[in-house]
Measured scan of single mutants.
Amino acid sequence: TFTSYQLEELEKVFQKTHYPDVYAREQLAMRTDLTEARVQVWFQNRRA
């Protein structure tokens, strides 16, 4: 599960791009204290 802060950050990036590159995902992962893999999976699920 994600915190409301994490979801907010993820959604913010999703609004800009549905396909963030690895750099964007790593920045987001650091900001949200998630792994890059978790961020990647979240985007895959969000796009589905």
Rank of each mutant, 00 (worst) to 15 (best):
A24W: 07
S4Q: 14
M30H: 11
L34I: 05
K16P: 09
R46S: 03
R38K: 12
F14G: 00
Q40S: 13
R46I: 02
T17H: 07
M30Y: 13
V41E: 15
V13Y: 09
Y23L: 13
K16F: 10
T17C: 12
Q27N: 06
T1L: 12
W42H: 01
F14S: 00
R31E: 06
M30L: 13
Y5C: 07
Q40N: 15
D21V: 03
E11P: 01
D21E: 14
Q44P: 02
V13M: 14
E9P: 00
D33H: 13
R31N: 06
W42A: 00
L34A: 03
H18A: 12
R25D: 00
A48G: 11
A29P: 01
Q6P: 01
V22L: 15
R25A: 05
D21G: 08
Q27D: 11
F2Y: 12
T32V: 12
T32A: 08
Y5W: 12
M30V: 10
E8K: 09
R47I: 08
N45W: 13
L34Y: 01
Y19N: 06
K16R: 12
Q27S: 09
E36R: 05
F43L: 04
H18G: 04
V39G: 00
H18K: 11
K12D: 04
L7Y: 05
V39L: 08
E11C: 03
Q40M: 14
F14M: 01
F43C: 03
T3A: 06
D33N: 15
K12H: 11
A37G: 09
Y23M: 11
Q27H: 08
A48N: 11
F43W: 01
R46T: 03
V13P: 01
T17Y: 07
Q6C: 03
S4K: 14
V13N: 02
V22T: 13
L7T: 08
D33A: 12
T35A: 05
Q40H: 13
E36H: 07
D33W: 07
N45G: 07
T17F: 07
E8G: 08
V22K: 15
E9S: 04
L7H: 07
F43K: 00
Y5P: 04
E9G: 02
V41S: 13
L10P: 00
F43V: 01
E8A: 13
F14N: 12
Q27A: 13
W42M: 09
E36L: 11
Q27T: 08
R31Y: 05
V41K: 14
D33G: 15
L28C: 03
Q27F: 13
E36P: 12
E36M: 14
E26V: 13
A48C: 12
F14P: 00
R31W: 06
T17R: 04
Q6A: 05
R31P: 00
Y23Q: 13
Q44W: 07
R25V: 15
A29H: 02
K16D: 09
A48Q: 11
F43E: 00
A29N: 12
E9A: 06
D21R: 04
Y5A: 07
E36K: 05
W42G: 00
T32K: 00
L10F: 04
Y5D: 08
E26I: 14
E8R: 10
T35Y: 03
Y5S: 07
M30C: 08
R46G: 02
F14L: 02
T1K: 10
E26D: 06
L7D: 04
R46C: 03
K16G: 06
S4C: 12
V22H: 13
V13T: 08
F14I: 15
V22R: 15
T35K: 04
A37Q: 12
P20N: 01
T1R: 11
T3V: 04
E36V: 13
K16Y: 10
Y23C: 09
Q44A: 11
V41G: 11
E11A: 03
Y23V: 14
V39A: 01
R31S: 06
T3N: 08
N45L: 11
R25M: 15
T1C: 11
A29F: 04
A24T: 15
K16E: 15
Q44L: 07
R31G: 04
F14A: 02
T1Y: 13
D21P: 05
F2M: 09
